[in-house]
Amino acid sequence: MKAPSWFAGPIGGALVVALLAAFVVPGMAGDYGIEFATTLVLWIALVQSWVILSGYTGYVSLGHAAFVGAGAYVFILTWGAVPFWFGLVAAGFTSGLLALIVGGPCLRVRGPYFVILTLGVAEFVKYAVINIEASLGKFGRLMIGTPEPVDIYRMAVGLAAIAFVMALVARYSRFGVGLRAIRENEVAAEMTGIRVRWLKVGAFGLSALVPGVVGALMICRTGYFEPLQMFSPQLSLTIITMCVAGGSDNPWGPLIGALFLNILSELLWDSAPELYTVILGVVLVFVVLRMPEGIYGTAVKRLARRSRKAVPGETTP
């Protein structure tokens, strides 16, 4: 771990932004503003968690739906039986544990095989939960007495801040160097003595903690749990979309991707409710074709090129 100072700036910044978001925004935004902000912040938490494994190592996972769903399920099972905070933590750790269990065998396959395998695992878990619920005679579960929207929002902000710091530390620590070495060349990484297997499984487990808690907060918002909704593969695809649109080599890209897609869809949804998904699709195609390294990656490159031109001889760090 080279220099904690590397983290100090961004972590301090994240803390300030989070505090501002948690305590200033609710006073300015109305009920709807808070709902929008909650959605946005939960997506930020999700993309930051996803990037730890999939962004840094290149193992693109469609498994986040399973972690969100598993967290939500554990949360509703413990609802009313344990303190609220304990339920949230349990939701996170259950998802993390699930990732550790399936991670070992799953991470033996690579590329598109891994992508579809994680989809398969997520669907398997979904239908397992559907069957368990059906055999228990349950048909959706209600939660009465969920927290107020503004409190859910504040928890979501806290969670997003934690996710961001996790992604940041994972990126710039020795752990992150190992992960990125796996992406560049897994065989070579192994030969230089990096414990590839442990790193990958560890990253998978870490990246599943936050979505478990997101799942719990999501069902707090509607007060209703139903497995088909909570284990939606669409969620996993949307996460990838945000990360690739923003660029997924560091925490900033996904952050920008989440902001970009959420704000864009909010604007379109409001002004063109009929056409907005079509327009969103077109924008997505455009972004991928024009900016193969994502919005953030492309912007950094352009800026670097410009500054190089302005100050000849100077190199960017």
């Binding site: 300015m28 935004a29 109305g30 709807y32 503003g33 929008f36 704000i263 909010e266 604007l267 002004s271």
Partner: peptide, 9 residues
Amino acid sequence: NRKITRRTV
């Protein structure tokens, strides 16, 4: 309320 969410429109 209007200001915050409409600003971007």
